[in-house]
């Protein structure tokens, strides 16, 4: 049986892992390679590296980091942050990234989704959606949660599928950093609308939150950062808990 995936996310700034709360107030969480190796040992199913300060000059630092990660770890990993062209993807995939994640650039230029999918296959492309519930609607945000768009989340998810996106990483800004649990309603809506793998993100603070999201939505992966970095929920314990609740995970 296909297993639900537990995915630690490493936010990267200048080559270090950092963690923001509600997209601000950043604290240091260590060397990304060491952390990645620890996660592989603990049983993480995939990893996501998100360069939160990606700029042109820092792109080279990221490519160097990806090259190192690819040498060291033997599970799939996704790299995102500031990717805006097929050329950016070429550099990261050649360095050894299994998938790339795009966000703001896909909103600005949806054709980028098709261009990347045609060149590398849909399986290589994660489209990240940052979503926030405001004025009775789940709106798509870009630029690290700083800019609200005109897009509604569910219809943008459908468009991503139509254009050839391979996977959706859905982060609820209302839940992110709160440790109160994933936003189940929007995760359910998106995962039931598209026939693509959906990764739920934002708000995990307890093992029961993963159980809820896997039981109540069609999400096939759950992503979190600080609770794994600071070992508040050891991955092995989380998986044992899910398995004891009849949720199929890799042990």
């Amino acid at each position: 049986m296909l297993k639900k995936r537990i995915i630690p996310c490493l936010d990267i700034q200048d080559g270090r892992t950092v963690k923001g709360v509600n997209f601000v107030a950043i604290r240091d969480a260590g060397d990304p390679i060491e952390l990645a190796q620890r996660y592989v040992k603990e049983g993480a199913d995939e990893l996501v590296f998100l360069d939160i300060t990606a700029t042109v000059e820092k792109r080279k630092t990221l490519v160097a980091l990806v090259t190192k990660v690819a040498k060291e770890i033997n599970i799939p990993f996704t790299v995102g942050g500031g990717i805006s062209s097929v050329e950016d993807v070429v550099a990261l995939v050649n360095a050894g990234a299994d998938k790339v994640s795009i966000n703001s650039a896909a909103v600005k230029n949806p054709e980028l989704i098709s261009a990347i999918a045609q060149r590398f296959g849909s399986q290589c492309l994660v489209v990240a959606i940052d979503t926030k519930f405001e004025d009775d609607e789940w709106w798509v945000y870009t630029h690290g949660g700083r800019k609200r768009t005109e897009l509604k989340t569910v219809s943008w998810a459908k468009e991503i599928e139509r254009l050839g996106g391979g996977e959706i990483l859905l982060t609820s800004m209302n839940s992110d950093g709160t440790k109160d649990g994933f936003s189940l309603d929007i995760t359910k809506q998106v995962s039931e609308t598209v026939n693509l793998p959906v990764i739920a993100s934002g708000g995990a603070g307890d093992s029961v939150h993963f159980k809820e999201v896997f039981e109540q939505t069609k999400a096939t992966g759950g992503l979190a950062a600080s609770i794994f970095h600071f070992n508040e929920i050891p991955i092995a314990e989380l998986k044992a808990y899910l398995a004891s609740n009849n949720i199929s995970v890799r042990e």
């Binding site: 049986m1 296909l2 297993k3 399986q123 391979g166 026939n195 793998p197 096939t220 992966g221």
Partner: peptide
């Protein structure tokens, strides 16, 4: 067939 999510993506035994 599209009776479940395609692609299959993840760990399977």
């Amino acid at each position: 067939p599209a009776t479940d999510i395609v692609p299959q993506m993840g760990w399977n035994n």
